[in-house]
Amino acid sequence: MGEIARILRTHLFHGVAVGLVVASLSFVVVNLTRGDTALEIAIARHGTALTNEALVEQIRIEEKLDQSLWIQYTRWIGHAFTFDLGRSLVSKEKVADLLWYHFRHTLVLSVAAMLISLVIALPWGIFCGIFPGGSFDNISGLVSSALVAVPHFVTGILLILALSIKLQWLPVAGFFTSRHLILPAATLGIGLAAFSSRVVATAIVDVRGALFYQFARMKGLAEARVLLGHGIKNASIPVITFIGLQTAHLLDGVVVVETLFAWPGIGKLILDSILARDIPVVQGAGLLIGLMYVAVNASVDLICIVLDPCRRDPEAIR
């Protein structure tokens, strides 16, 4: 499969390029932030009461913050390429370990959110696609526009109010049992579902209008057979491409949702690290998210290649 190798090669190249850009940008952004980094670290480590000038100077030398930015930058890039992300300035833990711990939680949350969104969006979108322009489809369009427009923190707070505080079905926040996963995952999943259901509906309308779909009916196949055999696979190609793009939306959402629900994922790690001026962690997390995008794009391309035979051999398309 030459095409698969080509895709992997392209995305590997993208990964390196994105890594370099993201590593540089996160370094620049962190260093553009106003205030004395050494002072902030001293406060984060020892508290405001114990922080004095001698301590701040000691930290500045220990963490090599007194060196020129250029030297700090080359050191960071060099280490990043050997996957040595350094240690947290605050907790002194290895950044790679911190990232892995939080990344696992984000992964669980994202996958759960994605599953919830698919469980809602697929039947919803397919139904709208089969009866386009009907009253259900029209109302769905309104509802999904409204849901897309509502920010995550509003959805989240409403869900907490309704399901945790009023009905007391689910815990408000934390990450101890799988029940803790439901609210944050639903908060993200509902927003995603609103968008995906429209994409699914459009894909179904398109495929049902295709000549081959009409022809499958003419062959005498039952309507369900036509949808299963000739509709779903063809409609899933644009849907999967879109879901890949949506993962970007998801990574935006996790910062808010993880903070709201005290979910120890990568989004919460970034926010906490930014507040604590934990430069290596912020930079490492930025890099990880950048590489995540590349990985998601690569997976989408690979899935589409499996689904769509045309893409396996692009030169054969006239």
């Binding site: 295709a210 003419m218 769509d308």
Partner: peptide, 30 residues
């Protein structure tokens, strides 16, 4: 009646066949 009693051969063979299904399957499913 479709497929059982009458059958319309469409004008555009390439567009009438499912692009993501092997052609032999499109015959065998009938």
């Amino acid at each position: 009646l479709w497929g059982r009693r009458m059958f319309l051969l469409p004008q555009e063979p390439r567009l009438a066949l499912n692009p993501t299904m092997r052609v032999i399957k499109q015959v065998s499913e009938v």
